[in-house]
Simulated assay, not measured.
Amino acid sequence: MSLTQRKIVSEHAAEPVGAYPHARQVGNLLFLSGIGPRERGSKAIPGVKMDEAGTVLDYDIVEEAKSVFRNIRLILEDAGSAWENIVDVTVFLTSIERDFKRFNEIYREHFGSIEPCRTTVEVNRLPTPIHVELKVIATIG
């Protein structure tokens, strides 16, 4: 049995930083690529302060997380799904020690009522000067 597949490229969320789509639908499941806090059409990263050389001076994990959540919502909506259909989340943080508590607070505000499964890992670095990225699985249809 072959499941129908469809590639999703949102025209509203931040552009992918590599050769991959925002998401791929397989049957009634939607698999999102790692989604960060950048904004479409901009190099600025919400919550991240950098100097002229591109060195991160400081960042606000709450502002980054809110922007990630916005991008995820946009992708889900463009795919024909919804925030409430999220069933699994993998969170990548660059500093669990610094950011885990504050991230959990903002996460609870946005995900508390739907309670998806979740895994959180600390990573040494993400592909751009960001400090949080989410990988999401949702249902569709």
Rank of each mutant, 00 (worst) to 15 (best):
S10L: 08
H12I: 06
A14F: 01
P16Q: 07
V17T: 15
H22P: 03
H22D: 00
A23R: 01
Q25L: 04
V26G: 10
G27N: 13
N28V: 05
N28H: 11
L30K: 05
L32I: 05
L32G: 03
S33F: 07
S33H: 08
G34V: 12
I35V: 15
R38V: 08
R38L: 09
E39A: 14
R40Q: 13
G41V: 05
I45F: 08
I45E: 03
K49S: 04
M50L: 00
M50N: 02
M50F: 02
M50C: 02
A53N: 09
A53L: 07
A53F: 09
G54P: 02
V56E: 04
L57V: 01
D58M: 01
Y59K: 05
D60N: 14
D60C: 09
I61P: 02
E64R: 03
E64D: 00
K66G: 12
V68Q: 01
F69N: 06
R70S: 08
R70V: 10
N71T: 09
I72G: 07
R73W: 03
L74C: 09
L76A: 03
D78R: 02
D78M: 00
S81L: 03
A82G: 07
A82M: 00
E84M: 04
N85E: 13
N85I: 09
V87A: 03
V89R: 02
F92Q: 15
L93I: 10
T94L: 05
T94C: 11
S95I: 10
D99R: 06
F103V: 11
N104K: 09
F111V: 09
F111W: 05
F111C: 05
G112W: 06
G112I: 06
G112M: 08
S113V: 10
S113Q: 10
I114F: 03
C117E: 14
R118K: 13
R118A: 13
T119G: 11
V121G: 06
E122Q: 15
R125C: 10
R125E: 15
L126S: 07
L126M: 02
T128Y: 11
T128S: 14
P129W: 09
P129C: 11
P129K: 09
H131P: 08
H131C: 06
E133Y: 12
E133M: 14
V136N: 02
V136L: 03
